[in-house]
């Protein structure tokens, strides 16, 4: 794809792309290549010598039950976050997508959490559900729930999932609303004339027509759950208790931070890159082509 009318110049175009090319090469390709190289190397405990070990780091990693658990946990988190956030957002968008009085007002009040940073989300939720002083934790205690996410891994995971889903509602809401507004009302009116009630119309007409948006949002939500939740986890649980909330990204961070195994940390980064590339490819293949009926 290119314009028919273009300028001729020998050096100017290179000069114009130079800044971006420089930044991308230095801060993107160089580190990415280093990660790949490092993942094939093994360093001794003092960092004095390195040996080329082929896939040793990967083998070790994939045989490590801790790593395997982190993979499963990350996917479970993504699934739970996407499900909770998407269903609530779809409900709200379906309600807002009709000629209601004040629908702009509702939209404004529902979209701003997009702008709240993950660590701040973590702080807000840890404050509400802190076992000793949280307002909601008190309510739970009064209901007879033994609430203590500092000790109970499942409760800690629930807390992370709720906080992460909360932040994502506004994003999903916006895209659902845009998707709903793109559905021509004539289709829905035709179904109504055939005698379909609102619920039936929603599940047989609106929902299928919304499927491109839904697929797109599922991928975006999974990527979000993989990466953006880092700030939430780091403020609420720091991966604990007993690694119950340690996701893949958090593991890369904490393994590398403890100074330990650079090769393993690099191998983890490379695996993460692979997952992201696979997700992106999936999105291009299935979402860009539009799921149509």
């Amino acid at each position: 794809m290119q314009k028919n009318a273009v300028f001729q110049s020998k050096f100017l175009p290179y000069l114009l792309v130079l800044p971006q090319l420089a930044v991308v090469l230095v801060f993107f390709y160089w580190p990415a290549v280093q990660a790949v190289i490092q993942s094939f190397l093994l360093q001794d405990a003092f960092g004095l010598s390195t040996v080329f070990v082929w896939f040793e780091n990967y083998k070790e990693l994939l045989a490590d039950p801790d790593y395997f658990a982190a993979i499963l946990r990350t996917f479970a988190f993504s699934f739970a976050i996407a499900l909770a956030s998407l269903s609530l957002a779809l409900l709200l968008a379906a309600m807002a997508d009709r000629p209601l009085r004040g629908s702009m007002f509702y939209r404004t009040l529902l979209i701003w959490p997009y702008a709240v940073a993950p660590p701040v989300v973590g702080v807000l939720w840890v404050f509400m559900l802190n076992p000793s002083l949280g307002v909601i934790a008190h309510g739970l205690r009064n209901l007879g729930v033994d609430w203590n996410p500092l000790l109970d891994g499942n409760q800690a995971a629930t807390l992370i999932i709720l906080a992460a889903a909360w932040k994502q509602i506004s994003y999903n809401f916006l895209f659902f609303l845009a998707g709903l507004q793109a559905i021509p009302s004539s289709v829905i009116e035709a179904a109504a004339i055939d005698g379909a009630r609102p619920m039936r119309r929603f599940w047989t007409i609106v929902f299928p027509l919304l499927s491109p948006t839904i697929f797109f949002l599922i991928v975006v939500n999974i990527v979000y759950a993989f990466f953006e939740t880092f700030g939430i986890i780091d403020t609420i649980t720091r991966g604990g208790p007993a690694k119950a909330t340690e996701t893949l990204v958090y593991k890369v961070y904490s393994d590398g931070l403890l100074g330990g195994n650079l090769g393993s940390s690099a191998a983890q980064s490379v695996i993460l890159m692979g997952i992201v590339i696979a997700l992106t490819a999936f999105q291009f293949r299935f979402v860009e082509r539009k799921v149509n009926y």
Binding site: V17, A35, V223, F227, V249
Partner: peptide, 25 residues
């Protein structure tokens, strides 16, 4: 070529190459 070099960066957030980038910086 330049377009593709730039385009590919679309796929990877900074989180996946965090320590190598740290080292370069």
């Amino acid at each position: 070529t330049i377009f593709w070099i730039i385009f590919i960066t679309l796929m990877l957030p900074v989180e996946v190459r965090i320590y190598p980038t740290y080292k370069i910086v």
